[in-house]
Design a binder for these strands. Structure first.
Lengths: 211, 211
DNA sequence: CCAAAAGTGGGTTGTCCAATCCAGTTGGTA
DNA sequence: TACCAACTGGATTGGACAACCCACTTTTGG
C-alpha cells in the first residue's frame, strides 16, 4: 500500500537496505509532521531524525511533496496497525466499547496532541495537493472498511435491524471519531472523543435492542 | 469577541476608518487562509487582497501569528452569522433537519472545499500556537453552546428523556459535524457530512419518541 | 569480483517571505 | 489650525529552506 515509486523515473529496483533506509526516512518524517505539522517540518530535520546524510532524502523522493504523500500512506498503515485486534472485534457491542476505550486511552497517553495522523495531515494539505488529499481519503476508507466489516457481521447475524445500513453506520462512526479527535486536540481534553463515540455506540446499542 | 488589541502595546484607540481597514485585512486573510491554508498564505497576498499598501498589515498586527489569531476569532463570528436563524431553531426536529440541509447545501455550493473555517484553521496551527488553539476551541464552544440551547429547550419541554444530557448531545452533534466536514473535504463529496449528521439526528428522533 | 546501488559529507544556488524602516501625504477631529 | 492616526510606496535586511550537484566510499547481490 505504501508507494514504492523511485524518485528517478527509471524504475530501478530498491535493495532491502534501500527499502529500510527509505522507510526510516518516512517514519521520521511521519513523527515530525505529526508533532509539528507539514509546514513546520524541514527536510533537514527529517534527515537528522532519520540518521541519514546529505542528499539521501532526495535519493528516495523527488521532492517534499512526494515525501508527504508517502507519509500519508505510511500513517494509514500505522494507524490501522496500532489498533491491532480491536478492528477485528467490532462485531459485538463489547468489542466496540473496548475499541472506544482503547482510542480514548491512546489520546490520553498522547496528551491529546496531534489529532488523527491521517485526518490532520490530510486536512493540512487538502487544498494544496490533490494527490495527497486522495491518499488521505483512501486511508480513511480503509479504516471505514474495517468498521463496516464488524457491523456487517452483526447485521448478517441479525443483531442489527435489517433496514439499517452497515455502510452508513460505519461512515457515521468514523466521522464522529474524526470530529472527536479534532475537538479533543483543540481542547486538550478527551471528553469530545468520549462523548462523540459514546453517542454513536449508544445508538448502535439501541438499534440492536430493537432487532 | 474579535480581538481589539493594537500591534503596539500602548493601547491607542482606533478610529472608525482604522477599524474598517483592520477588518478588511482580517477578512481578506480569512478568505485566503480558508482557500489555501495558513502556511500557503503570504502577507503580501493578504495586503494585495485587502487593497492596502506596504506596511499597513504591520500597523495593525504585531506579526503573522497575531493576524492568524484575529482570523480565528473572525471566522468564529462569521460561521455563526452564516447559519443565521437556523441556530435559533434547533429546539425542534424539523429545525434540526432544516439546519442539516442548510449545512449540506452550503458544502455543496463550496464544492466541498476548505472544511470547517474554525476547525481546519485550528488544526493547522494547534501544535504550533497554543493561543490560536485555544481561540479555535473557544469558537467551537460558542457553536456548541448554540446547539445545546436548542436541545435544552427540547429537554425542558419534555421532548427528550429526562436522563439525556443536552450538553453531551450537543457536543456529539458538533463532533459529528466536524468529522463530517473533514471527510467531506477530503473526499470532495457531501455524503460523509450527510450521513454523520443524519445519524445524530436519527438518534435524537429516537430519543424523542421514548420521551 | 564486479557493477550498480547505497551512502557520506559536504557545498551551492535561488527563491521566498517575514519583518523592519522610513520619508512623505492624506484625512479627520478637537 | 495643529495634531495624530491612517495611509502610501517603496527599500531593505536577514534568515530559512527546498532543491540540486559532486567527488568519493561502502555495501550488496548476481
Amino acid at each position: 500500500m505504501t508507494g514504492n515509486e523511485r524518485a528517478e523515473t527509471g524504475g530501478r529496483p530498491l535493495t532491502r537496505r534501500g527499502q529500510e533506509t527509505r522507510q526510516r526516512i518516512v517514519a521520521a518524517a511521519a513523527e515530525l509532521m505529526f508533532d509539528n505539522g507539514v509546514a513546520e517540518t524541514t527536510l533537514e530535520e527529517i534527515r537528522a531524525a532519520a540518521g541519514v546524510s546529505g542528499s539521501q532524502v532526495y535519493h528516495y523522493f523527488a521532492d517534499k511533496q512526494a515525501l508527504v504523500r508517502a507519509v500519508i500512506d505510511f500513517q494509514a498503515d500505522t494507524v490501522l496497525d496500532a489498533q491491532g485486534d480491536h478492528l477485528d472485534r467490532l462485531d459485538t457491542l463489547a468489542g466496540l466499547r473496548a475499541w472506544r476505550d482503547f482510542l480514548v486511552e491512546h489520546q490520553r497517553r498522547l496528551g491529546c496532541r496531534g489529532g488523527c495522523p491521517i485526518g490532520a495531515l490530510g486536512a493540512e494539505v487538502a487544498e494544496t495537493d490533490a494527490v495527497a488529499r486522495v491518499a488521505a481519503a483512501r486511508g480513511l476508507r480503509r479504516w471505514e472498511g474495517r468498521i463496516r466489516d464488524g457491523l456487517a457481521a452483526m447485521h448478517a447475524r441479525g443483531d442489527l435491524p435489517a433496514v439499517t445500513d452497515p455502510e452508513d453506520l460505519a461512515l457515521a462512526i468514523l466521522a464522529a471519531l474524526q470530529g472527536g479527535l479534532l475537538m479533543t486536540q483543540l481542547q486538550r481534553d478527551t471528553r469530545p472523543l468520549e462523548v462523540a463515540l459514546d453517542a454513536m455506540l449508544d445508538r448502535i446499542e439501541a438499534l440492536a435492542a430493537t432487532a
